[in-house]
């Protein structure tokens, strides 16, 4: 279980998180939505201590996140992170990208590791790219490798920081497919995203953040169809309107799955 209790975070004088509470149970998929600058990425990144918090506490499986480098590292073993910019290691092959962390953390025996890498690459559909280098791959392929890389550490929880925001539209679908597969397999996930239809489809719970505060939370059906908060309504209206135009064919973009 991931718990955030009254979390505050300042960047200098600017208060970015103003007392945020969140609980994520095992097996849950939580989607976090909100306008830019609302603090949603900061909140996600503080879960695995990429951002330090200035108030409140974060608990991973009951243990406070923080303390010595060793303690932080131990907590991070259960947290996998997928970044908006993928952050693959460009000087290593796809295989080495995935193998590096498990090898250095002695997670597997050699054969077991090779098997795991092949399984993960098959799962994301990129087994044939095992010996390529990241700059040789498209954005969608790189992000799928990044997901495989995070999964190789066998984390309990997966964190996604706007995983498709840096992708060209036609490449978003392949990444969303992989993430959905993960959800179907029962992985506990916290996803910060702008892809509303996707969030509506796979999330058990949706959190709406604005101005550093959680202003609404509930099941997708409630948030997207009958939001209680005015700001949620305005925010969703502007996003869903654009998606509606896409559906009506006013703009043509291929590959996005928009479902009712």
């Amino acid at each position: 279980m991931i718990e955030l209790k009254n979390v505050h975070k300042n960047f200098g004088k600017l208060e970015v998180l103003k007392g945020v509470d969140l609980t994520v149970k095992e097996g849950e998929v939580v989607a976090i939505i909100g306008p830019s600058g609302s603090g949603k990425s900061t909140m996600l990144r503080s879960i695995n201590h990429l951002e330090t918090i200035d108030g409140g506490e974060i608990l991973i499986d009951g243990k406070v996140m923080g303390g010595s480098a060793k303690q932080i590292k131990e907590a991070r073993l259960n947290l996998g992170m997928v970044f908006q910019q993928f952050n693959l290691f460009p000087h290593l092959t796809v295989h080495d990208n995935i193998a590096l962390a498990p090898k250095l953390n002695h997670r597997f025996e050699k054969e077991e590791l090779e098997k795991t890498i092949d399984e993960l690459l098959t799962k994301v559909g990129l087994l044939d790219k095992k010996n390529n280098y990241p700059p040789q791959l498209s954005g969608g392929q790189q992000q799928r490798i990044a997901i495989a890389r995070a999964l190789a550490m066998k984390p309990k929880y997966m964190l996604f920081d706007e995983p498709t925001s840096a992708l060209d539209p036609e490449l978003i679908g392949e990444v969303l497919r992989v993430i959905r597969q993960l959800a179907d397999d029962g992985m506990t996930m916290v996803i910060v995203t702008h892809e509303m239809s996707f969030a509506r489809d796979i999330a058990d719970r949706v959190i709406m953040i604005d101005g550093g505060v959680i202003i609404e939370e509930g099941p997708p059906r409630q948030i997207f169809s009958s939001p209680k908060n005015e700001r949620t309504k305005t925010f969703l209206k502007s996003i869903l309107e654009r998606e509606e135009s896409v559906k009506e064919g006013l703009f043509t973009t291929a590959g996005i799955e928009i479902e009712e």
């Binding site: 990429l50 480098a69 991070r76 996998g80 910019q85 952050n87």
Partner: peptide
């Protein structure tokens, strides 16, 4: 880019390993 450090951190690489590898 800072993201390389963050990726290495989130993959539980020690600071030394992150630097060398």
């Amino acid at each position: 880019p800072k993201g390389q450090w963050e990726a290495a951190d989130s993959l539980c690489l020690s600071k030394t390993n992150a630097f060398i590898r």
